[in-house]
Amino acid sequence: MIEFQNATKVYESVDKSVTAVNNINFHVEPGEICVFLGPSGCGKTTLLRMVNRLIPITRGSIEVEGKNINSMDIIKLRRSIGYVIQHNGLFPNMTIEDNINVVPKMLGWDQNRMKKRCSELMEMMGLDPGQFQKRYPFELSGGQQQRIGIARALAADPPVMLMDEPFGALDPIIRDHLQNEFLRIQKEMKKTILFVSHDIDEAIKLGDKVAIFDTGELMQIGTPDEILSNPKNDFVRDFVGDDRALKRLTLLKVRDLMVLSDGFRKHRLNNEWHGQVISVNENLKTALSHLLSAPNGEVCVVDDHNKKLGVLCVSDFNLFTEVHPKDISIVR
């Protein structure tokens, strides 16, 4: 649980004062990923760095796990919060193993516990410990380095993680791959995560909540669906883009559409199906893309065992115009 109360950061210089973060109020529930989104200079990174006191707060308060951060010992506070940055920040003079063990070592863990934790984390990140733990960071690819960066932040099992554009410097394919793995890991770990991004698609994909900032102000905070279906003001509308209806499709799966439409043209399956096939777990944006490229405007939906469930066509999308993911989960 992280709570911001009137959090404000003012930079004073001789002739002027700049408010980088202005009166921010919101909270993040335990186990949630909250993505801070906004253009550069909007204050999102400043706000993130205020949480582990890399930037001191000017006014207001921030509470982590129910404790005001200013009342805690600064070193202890930082060791209890995982921190991942864009350019991984791995220590080039240490092996991968030593990098991962930095915080546990400072916390005084014994050798065996550190060794076990290190292997466990590397396996979780999909890197073979035997092959990689004795290597130096420069011997790894960018994507591998970033995985180690995340493993290092997770090492002492902190309840809270701060991530400053961790996938920002990676190419789109690796980024997508790491995002998926990150979500998989988060499902088990249930950390409370603050995640800075400037990429709306990343925010929609990863965030349980998305907070949009501009010039130090919180513009809107809500679930990705709320942000996309009901942008609060012109800035948010512009920032999420004119294709927000399309982006919203990524939040729903073919399965959700099937719940809404009864029948789903099962009768069409009597004959052999020669057209395109799509998984019931695919998101609706991909489904739409398949439909647009299908010669007769229809695709067959199959489940995980390749059993044919029905036929989807573009007109089905009308069903969900005013439907939100949270309504669907109730139907489920």
Binding site: R79, L90, F91, M94, V102, M106
Partner: peptide
Amino acid sequence: VDPNVRDAAIGMGMTTFQRLIKVELPL
């Protein structure tokens, strides 16, 4: 010393002395 590396060291809770001995001086 790469500012990102320094930032990571501070953010992870190293004291100034630990940062010097473990990271900055070796680099």
